[in-house]
Design a protein around this nucleic acid. Structure first.
Lengths: 174, 174
DNA sequence: AGGCAAGTAGAAGGATTATTCTACAGGAGC
DNA sequence: GCTCCTGTAGAATAATCCTTCTACTTGCCT
């Protein structure tokens, strides 16, 4: 059960990340998940549920990548955290944040909005804990969101900008 | 011709901003545009063209709001510029940037991606011109994107964070 | 051995959608 | 007066999509 669920969730995440949340049909999702239609609907009884499943999987993977998992490798400061965020963008060839994409495709879905808030608050909380000084949570939020969003436009330049901003605001906390 | 085009473009922009780019059907778009189906297709011969029309209209309105139009009221510095961005978010009750939303709904559409890049580069160029010191374009990009994106989560706190960051990086240019 | 849980493959239904087309009304210009 | 342009209203088409359902297979447990 768990094994199959991971397989499906991973496939769904890949499909939505590559083609957005609007375009892929359920049959497309079935193909990238590599299961039958019936099994797909068993683990996610509607297309909306498939979106939620993909986002939950994404959340886990993002946290593991950026903040390290139990395997012991975790960033030691804000600078390293930002580098990991950039690395995530590089590896996933991300068109920006998948949670924002999901909300953008269905702006009136309260469930999605809830997931987005939960995801972002968890991320900012973990990031604040990496700071030496008691950095303002919304400061780090602006920096991380700015880095994530402008990555696809500025690339590596966005990373050095984000690092510079973080350094300055850590030197002069509010 | 011009009058009708503005009416249609404005209606399309409102519809997509309120309900996202995936959900509204062409008949929904017709309703919010307030014209007949035939006229709508005359000015935008396909649904994709309707998206482009809406985004062009959005681009004009955004620039006019944030950087002032020929009517004489323009921001004098970075701080004021950021306040105008925040004001835009307040007024438009924006779920983030509409261009990013469009790209998120169709990540493989090259036309959309081109429009996004063009929009953002124009914005950052105009913003840089508002800075006293020669601020790094990608710095201001990260700040504006961060403010825009985290507005829906942090609200006014995002604005003061963005202003603080801008102040710091203007004091210590690269 | 036999039955049950969980999988594949794919057809069918019913609804929605983008686009095109027909039929008609009002107004401006020659 | 007549014609052309631009508009409305709405039907028809052809395709796509989500969801459900049937028929069949495989492996595991008692």
């Amino acid at each position: 059960m768990n094994n199959m669920q991971r397989k499906i969730a991973g496939g769904l995440e890949r499909a939505f990340a590559a083609r957005g949340f609007a375009e892929p049909s359920v049959e497309d999702l079935r193909d990238t998940a590599g299961v039958s239609l019936r099994t797909l609907y068993k683990y996610a009884p509607s297309r909306d549920a498939m979106v939620l499943l993909a986002l939950e999987h994404r959340h886990q993977r993002y946290l593991a990548h950026v903040f390290g998992d139990s395997a012991g490798s975790a960033p030691h400061n804000l600078n390293e955290t930002l580098e990991r965020v950039a690395d995530w963008m590089r590896v996933e060839a991300c068109h920006g944040c998948l949670f924002h994409s999901a909300v953008a495709s269905a702006p009136n879905d309260a469930n999605l909005r809830g997931l987005l808030e939960q995801h972002k608050s968890e991320v900012s909380q973990l990031a604040v804990a990496k700071s030496r000084t008691g950095i303002n949570p919304s400061d780090i939020m602006v920096i991380i969101e700015g880095l994530t969003q402008s990555w696809s436009l500025s690339g590596e330049k966005a990373l050095s900008s984000a690092k510079r901003l973080a350094l300055l605001v850590e030197e002069k906390p509010v």
